[in-house]
Design a protein around this nucleic acid. Structure first.
Lengths: 332, 332
DNA sequence: CTGAAAGCGCTTACAG
DNA sequence: CTGAAAGCGCTTACAG
């Protein structure tokens, strides 16, 4: 697998490597004669030349590589975000490196180091709990970074997010108006700001009502088991109940519980879930869900990062998108 | 974002860059004195040195990068394969570049070019229809490649696959013995060898029985619509019927049809699907499915590729794994 | 219109 | 025990 280099082209076309480089990069500015130009192009084609991006990167001090660190790539939300980011990155000439840290700060740190060694021009990250140290190091090095989905409480990095609190309030409002005896919020026991926002929005609306509300908060591991156990303990079918699952993982676990216990939706219990996932569509009832504008978020994140790369600034702006409540038939 | 280089270390520690390089790469062979060694390491740490892999790659003529081209990353099968490959690649010191060509040969070709320019040491690919040209070019350049899941009819590339024909025959045998009036095979109208194998295995077993069989073959786009339409036309609930969905996408579309039409499984119709996906678990009946040994396949593919990289050979061996039929309650 | 030369950050065979 | 130097494949300011 010996690859042709511009040196080879230069030798065969009997010109200098400089000239080859100019022609190949279309930087001649009409300086090079048509004859040499076509000769060079022909030779390049005939020996199957492909540029060595590594060499170019070294010289140019930029790789046109972007690193993406998601919290969990097996989550449909993140895999869809990744696809959209890849498309957008490509449009701006970047190649995307994808890493999943699986909510593990050690793995998060390792990925930042890996990407850094790989000389990525910047990173799009979804911070996980305890990833602050690794992130601060990047900030200190003035590494271009942009957050997505999640954000940091104490640091103002540029990033994209949704109106978590607001949309939760809307959902809750919708449920409150339907006159349920009880509304159950299913969320995570976590410090992640965007998730606390979802909880806050819900709480605020509940506070203004006189409806009884319960909170089921679970750890980030063993989601299925914990959701099942807590639903067992908290779901009282003698009451007219609505459940709000604040993530797709929680939603899937909850739907699974309802299937296993033959609880029919929305006859016996109503529900709303966060995010969209293919799995919702195999549930016997159409699931009402919160849809995030993935494409717009992906596009904006790449744009923000590109800006950071071209002109580094410390006070990044955070862009908030509006999630959309898609009403289906799972709420009665 | 000015990064420290070994030159900086050399200057501060007052040694040559050669010495720094030896120490950093632990290639001293006890040649360097402990004093200089620790001095260099201390300086490296204090100025936050991270090696520039780009420079190293250029010099060493290898990047420790592997490219993975899957047919469709939004398919759970491929995203799980990708995760497993990433883990295995990491173990051997490789970083994984992931690309999804979405069954599009143009995109496939573009990804091979992108990866090639990025100087990946090798590629793991799932060939799509009409990708032969791009693949032949790689072969001609003696680029280390390994196929996964799918394989090529006319070229013997090293690769991993499952016993498609055999497992289909087993499934069919299982259904034949249950004495259905009719068995429907749902597959793709395609030339992809591994899918034709699935069909062949089914056909062979049917031929030895006297059960009526139907084939529903659909195009690779608009899966949901086509499956719905053809099931509408072909499903006769007055007969005792079993359906065999030969991919997870087909399975999901089919399950969706059954949900939409309130057809109960296995009471009114029995079914088996290929591959595992989270969505199956939200279906009211536990779905019997074919499980592929993803981890083993991923590991073997990386191993085969690593072998190719270290010692290129043209006659690659193909490794076949055994898929497993997981019987649940969707067949009566 | 074209080329010689420096340099990006590394590694390593060679010399001392 | 340590260093000078060449070279990986490019780009580009400069000279002619």
């Amino acid at each position: 697998m010996k690859r042709a280099s511009i040196k080879d082209i230069a030798r065969i076309a009997e010109v200098s490597v400089a000239t080859v480089s100019y022609v190949l990069n279309k930087k001649e500015g009409s300086r090079i004669s048509e004859a040499t130009k076509t000769r060079i192009l022909d030779v390049a084609k005939s020996i199957n030349y492909t540029p060595n991006k590594i060499a170019k990167s070294l010289k140019m001090n930029k790789t046109k590589l972007i690193g993406l660190i998601v919290a969990d790539i097996s989550n449909d939300f993140y895999s869809n975000i990744a696809r959209n980011i890849e498309d957008e990155a490509m449009k701006l000439g970047y190649t995307l490196l994808i890493g999943s840290c699986d909510e593990n700060p050690e793995k998060f740190k390792k990925l930042t180091e890996l990407f850094s060694e790989q000389q990525v021009d910047g990173m799009i990250i979804a911070p996980v709990v305890d990833s602050d140290e690794a992130i601060n190091k990047l900030i200190q090095e003035e590494y271009p970074i942009v957050t997505i989905d999640r954000y940091l409480k104490n640091v103002s990095l540029p990033g994209v997010m949704i109106n978590n609190s607001e949309i939760s309030e809307q959902i809750c409002d919708h449920l409150v108006k339907k006159d349920f005896d009880e509304i159950i919020y299913v969320g995570y026991n976590t410090e992640l700001p965007h998730l606390l926002d979802r909880q806050d929005g819900f709480d605020q609306r509940i506070a203004k009502s006189d409806i009884s509300a319960k909170r089921i908060l679970i750890g980030i591991h063993n989601i299925t088991e914990e959701v099942h156990q807590k639903m067992q303990e908290n779901l009282d079918l003698s009451k007219k109940t609505a459940i709000y699952f604040s993530s797709n993982k929680l939603g899937i676990a909850g739907l699974r519980y309802l299937i296993d216990h033959s609880i029919s939706v929305p006859e016996q219990v109503s529900l709303v879930a966060f995010d969209e996932t293919e799995a919702y569509y195999l549930f016997p009832t159409e699931v009402s869900f919160v849809q995030q504008p993935l494409y717009d978020m992906a596009r904006e994140s790449v744009k923000l990062l590109d800006n950071q790369i071209n002109d580094y600034t410390t006070n990044g702006k955070r862009v908030t998108f509006h999630a959309k409540f898609m009403e289906r038939s799972s709420v009665k």
